[in-house]
Design a protein around this nucleic acid. Sequence first.
DNA 1: TGTACATCAGTGAACGCGCGTTCACTGATGTAC
DNA 2: TGTACATCAGTGAACGCGCGTTCACTGATGTAC
Lengths: 203, 203
Amino acid sequence: VARPSDGYHHGDLRRALLQAAFQVLDESGLDRLSLREVARRAGVSHAAPYHHFADKAALVTALVDAGFEQLAESLSAAASGPGTNLERLGRIGGAYVSFAIENPATFRLLFRPELRGTTPAAGDSGQAAYAVLLEAVRACLASREAVGDSRALSLTAWSTVHGLATLLLDGPLHDHLAPGELSDSLARNVTSVLAVGFMPRGG
Amino acid sequence: VARPSDGYHHGDLRRALLQAAFQVLDESGLDRLSLREVARRAGVSHAAPYHHFADKAALVTALVDAGFEQLAESLSAAASGPGTNLERLGRIGGAYVSFAIENPATFRLLFRPELRGTTPAAGDSGQAAYAVLLEAVRACLASREAVGDSRALSLTAWSTVHGLATLLLDGPLHDHLAPGELSDSLARNVTSVLAVGFMPRGG
DNA sequence: TGTACATCAGTGAACGCGCGTTCACTGATGTAC
DNA sequence: TGTACATCAGTGAACGCGCGTTCACTGATGTAC
């Protein structure tokens, strides 16, 4: 039986709950995310979510899955397009930082230690995201735009953008920072220093 | 009146509570840190902590203060000693990563967004830690071991080690990682790539 | 088209839980004389 | 040295709270005939 997209009682409570959950996450963080609060936001009784999620953990798992998928898609999109391999790599890094800034709660969620290994799908998407990076680094190596070990270089690149992202979100940088342009220029600065490091003794 | 260091009722409940709190933090994370649990660990009734901390927030604030102080000390220690300025800078980076790995709960605590600006003392210590890094970068610039803008270079360096640290602690790297040696060699790899990036067109 | 029925999304009361915090207390430690 | 007193760290009962989860229910939607 095909169910009309808007048509059953609430319509699409599941989606509404996830949306509300992301909202709570953005405003108050994971710690304050409760099923009851999410239900409240969705305008529904506190027991209603149990028709869509087995328990609270299932809701959180769904959030994590969705988050990793979004991240992997962002990186993939940035990886395509014109330019040198090194430029593409730089774009991937920029996309990583942008994703974090535009989706702070989601980004933080993905790296909460207590959620690690909670969901196999997330693991897959995480791998996919890393694969995009690794691929781009290998392309640089193949085209002689970088030299070294692909794993070490990937790790350095990842560390740098991940560090920048988390410092921007949660660190002291937050204070000294107008959002948008400034973080973009920081990202460019950082990735260009990094690019030089990828190609010792000028290419 | 001088109070003997071990001598009043419990002895030094305040210290014991902080220790217990760090223990809980390491085992279960900030989310599960409750005054009652801390009191339990310290072997004391749940109301006892109120003689040493005004409320739960005060306990957490004390933890954050202690954490930042420790970090600043670690970095200062690493900054002194022999070697080129670039080597010193590398050592600071290594110390940063080591601190995170050896004190995971503390390190995470320092960057919890909801605790930001909670304690002025922590802000000072945080500044002190950053000052160590900035100083080292400036030394590199002065001795022509690096070229560029000190702020951008500091930020890149910080981002890189911070990213590596958080990926090691909370990220996918955790799985593929034997502790100790491997993280050290990763840190060395990462900082050496970075060092090259600091000195474009080989010096 | 109508009617009887099945399905199932959402409701609201209820449960037990651990929490932060308050309070009157107890009893050990230190002080004045 | 002894005695009366003040201080104050720690106790245990009690409070109100929001939480996750369960349950019997209601009522709208879809289905069979």
